[in-house]
Every structure is written in C-alpha cells, then in structure tokens.
Write a protein that binds this DNA or RNA. Sequence first.
RNA 1: UGGGGCGUCGUCAAGCGGUAAGACACAUGGUUUUGGUCCAUGCAUUCGGGGGUUCGAAUCCUCCCGCCCCAGCCA
Length: 564
Amino acid sequence: MSDAGSKSPSNFIKHIVEEDLKNKKNNGKVQTRFPPEPNGYLHIGHAKSICLNFGVAAEYNGLCNLRFDDTNPSKEESEYVHSIIEDVHWLGFDWADRMFYASDYFEQLYQYAVQLIKNNRAYVCDLTADEIRKYRGTLTEPGKESPFRTRSVEENLDLFERMRNGEFEDGSRTLRAKIDMASGNINMRDPVFYRIQRSTHHRTGDSWCIYPMYDYAHCVSDSIEKITHSLCTLEFEDHRPLYDWFLDELNVFHPQQIEFARLNLTYTVMSKRKLLQLVKEGHVSGWDDPRMPTISGLRRRGYTPESIRNFCDRIGVAKADSTVDMALLEYCIREDLNKSALRVMSVLNPLKVVITNYPEDEVDELEAVNNPEDPDAGTRRVPFSKVLYIEKEDFMQDPPKKFFRLAPGREVRLRYAYFITCTDVIKDESTGEVVELHCTYDPETRGGDSPDGRKVKATLHWVSAGHAIDAEVRLYNSLFTAENPESGDDLPRYINPESQQVLTSCKIEPGLADASPGNRFQFERLGYFCVDPDSSPGRPVFNRTVTLRDTWAKLQKAGKLTQL
RNA sequence: UGGGGCGUCGUCAAGCGGUAAGACACAUGGUUUUGGUCCAUGCAUUCGGGGGUUCGAAUCCUCCCGCCCCAGCCA
C-alpha cells in the first residue's frame, strides 16, 4: 500500500475512534468503508474521503472496504465502477478482497424489509410522488398521514411481494417506513425506502424492478459489513436519526455514523452534477481533462498520488464548512516534484539566437545536472551550437529596472553553457516584432562560470536549434474565473476563456525524444510538465502541471516595475 | 416560523479550564549557474458579540448575531 498508511495529523474523528478503542467498543476493531455511487468519476473531494477512510483504518489496525452504493440503476454505469477502482488504486490504497456492492445485498435488504412490515414498521403506500410531497408538509408545518398507513400487515406483505414480482407500474406504489409525519426532521416523515423502477441494473440486470433507497440500503450495508465507523459528509447529518432507526428496528449490528465537512476548492467546482455538466456541454474534453478536479484529470495533468495524499493530510478533517485555497494543492505538487522530477530545458515560445562568433558547424556537448535536489539523478549531455532558441519572454528591447534577463548590450548566462552578450536585434520590418537576436559568446565561460569572476544577473534556458525536437505544450490555468463558481446559478458564465493554451511550436531538449505518457519533468524556469497520452512518436505532447513559483511574474502582475 | 450543524490569522486548522500549535498565502532579508529549491525573520494581546461562573475561559453557563444543510419514488 506504499506509505499511504503512515500517520496523518489528528482530527475529531480519530479522537472518537481512539476513545472507542480505549472503551473496547466493537471489541477493539476498526472497520471503515469508502462508499461511492458509480454515477460519475471520483474527484479531489472523494480523495479526502478515501484518505480519511483508508487512513483511519490503517492507523488503527483496521480494514477499509470499497463498496459501490449502486441502488439507483437509472444513473449508474459500469464505466464508472471501472474508473473508481482505477482511481482508488492509483491513489495508493488497497481493499484486498473486500470490494462490495450494495446490490450484493438486495435479497437480504428485501428480507429485512419484510421483517419491518411484519413488525408493523413499514407499509406499502399508493400515493403518487406528487401526493407524497403534499402529504409531507413543509419545513415548518407537520405532514399528514397517508391513508394507506393503516393497512394490515398481511396486505402490506402481499402488496410488497407483488411489487417485487412486477405486478405494478413504475412509481405506482412505494414501501414506506412508519415513523412520524409530524417530526421536525423531514427525513423521519415516513420516508420511502423502496420504489418500483424498471431499469436495467449494471450488475443485477433485470432481476429486480424494486430498488432500495439510500437511507435504508446504506445503513444496512454498513451493518452487514460490520462497519464500526461510517464516515460521511455533513449533509447526511439529518439522516443519522433514520440511519439509527432502521438498525434499531432491525436489531442488527449498529455502526456509528460520523459526519465531516466536504472539501471545496477555490476556482473549481466539486459537485458531480456540475462536473457532469462540464463534460456533457463540452466545456472540457472529458472527465479526465487536465483542468478537471477529478482524480483522472489531476493524474493526466501530472499530479502524483503522493502529492494528493499530502494535500489531504494538510487540509485536515473538521465540521466547519470550508474552502481550501487552490494554492495549497499547487504547493503540494511542487513540493513532491521538486524532489523527484528530472530537469530539462524546453523553450515554449522560441526566439532565434545566432552566436555570431561561434564556429559554423561545431557542436559542443555540455554537461547538465539532472536534478540538483537529488545527486543520484546524475548528469546528461546537452548539445550546443551556433544557432539556438531562447524564450521570447527572456528578451526585452527596453527593459524595466528589475528585468535581469537579456536586453541589447547586456550579458547573461545560458545555463550550463556560456555567457552571451546581445549585439544586434533583428526585427520584422512590417510588424516591428523581434524575430532574431545576434549575440557573441565568451569561450572562457564554458560550463557557465567566468574565470574572471564577473557576474551576470540572469541565467536563461535554451535549446540548440539544430538538435531540438518539436513538441506541443498545453498550458493550463484555473477552469473558472470566479473564486467560488459554485455560488452562481450560471456555471458556464464563469469559465475561464484562458484556462487552456495550446502551444504547437515548442522546442525541447533532444533527450526528451523517448519520454512516454505519464513521465514528468521540470522544464527549467518554467514549471512541471507531464507527457500526455495524446503524444505520438516524434511528436510529444506535454501538459503543464503547475508553474514554478515565479516572483518575477508576481512583480509584473503587481505592476511594481519602473522603467530603467 | 420547524429540525440539524458550524463560527479561532487572508485560507485551512490545532486547542478539550492554566494564559493562542502548525501549514498555505503574504512581506522582508540571505544563499543560488532555475527570479526555482533552501535558510532566516515578520504575520491573531486574541478566539462571532454581550453578560456570567472561576484565582484563571477560545475552552464551562447564558442570551444574542451570522453562515451552512434539509420539504427526490437521488446519493
């Protein structure tokens, strides 16, 4: 399980577990579960729950099950179960042979329902959906009892069996718990817990036409699996009395439901409904679009499982609604990649540089460090020649005071290569755009050090024009322009038109020729990049995972620059 | 107006009656062949507000204020 089971910061749930352990509750056992509904792809919010559930189990010598909450066949598909399995594994967690489905328990669930009917705790109701709503009352007014509430046990038993046998139309009858139509908690006003719905289930096919609902199926499934601590999000707090009611009435093993706040992240959305909308309406290329907060999107973007786990540890677990700063997620991936990513030089927006005093056909192989944070990563050789490319941004005709990079007459260092001085600027006559630079190099500075000790204020990355490989690079920014796009009604309105920028004429170091999808690199001075599956032989495609921290960009943005 | 929760630095979050951890962000210096990393320093006399209990309160009591969730045959 890699190191996914290591200690994480404490939280109120761990306190409860520790207290239970101390009191020998559940015979000192800890059993949790991660219970996704297979109706969409997992996102970073699920990662929080996954890390919590598997983490708590691992830390207290317990086990965590993976259970699909598949009680609504009209929304669920096996495509989603496959993706969920892949994503949880990728995050670094394992459930061994404990992968379950609520649908595994359909027969048991049915038998328990029969028992509730026999105990006069449930009844078949013929009210229409609309009528049930009207009978339910409002937040401030009590509901009215259904006229079918007093049916005999025998009639209920007969009707429920016939519901199962398919004798009635979809939606014509329901099985309801007989609780309290006047309860202040609306969930307790005789909730429906079985409905007739003829849709093919991804696992049970057409063998059922009645399906149990969440409140009933979830607590019973937890009980069957002997879950000790059933962790879920805050919106289910109101459902806990019902969770407890079913288990008490059935007199079966009774797990404890504990609720925690779901994760919100700035500049993105987390609800499955809204993520589905982005996919369906084509605002993104799919669930794994690198701009999506889905696990598959983050993976394609270049995030590591380790960085996501660290993120989940850092955000903590509590009950207060909160929105975590996206900057923390970015910090976590930089932290991880800084240690592990090989450094490489790539030029995104090439500007041609001719070293006028460098021999025409000479090629020099310069030694470059693969990762200054990891001596074991070794070194490599990078070709240098008369014609090079540097980043357009690294040259300015009339630089402001704090611009340290190349400018007319100025000397800078080309990383691992030589000091060069800009002597001429070639412009496009019609547009005035700088299209080429003429520079001279100082042969004495080979490797990047000056024997006479003179300093330069900047070091630029570069690539040899004759050796570079062409590549496509996709730059990403936040998907939304609003810090909390979920607050508005009109999601598309907040989509960032610059969330994706595709650069098709990038020049990358020749060593990158054999990079394969999923490989991650640091493009020096630019950021971390990951090879996209869209790559083809000879035509790599890179996704920018995240930029490096950039104090220069910050200065520019803050407008703190004065002209020289 | 009913029920259930939550309010500690810009954002997360410890704290559990003994006198406000940590992280991110931000700011300023230092090192540096990545304006990266790293290092150093600063950043809540105060815990939504008012009363009260106590030698002592973010922690206990009380009143008030604010925010979130609930009226699917979704989960």
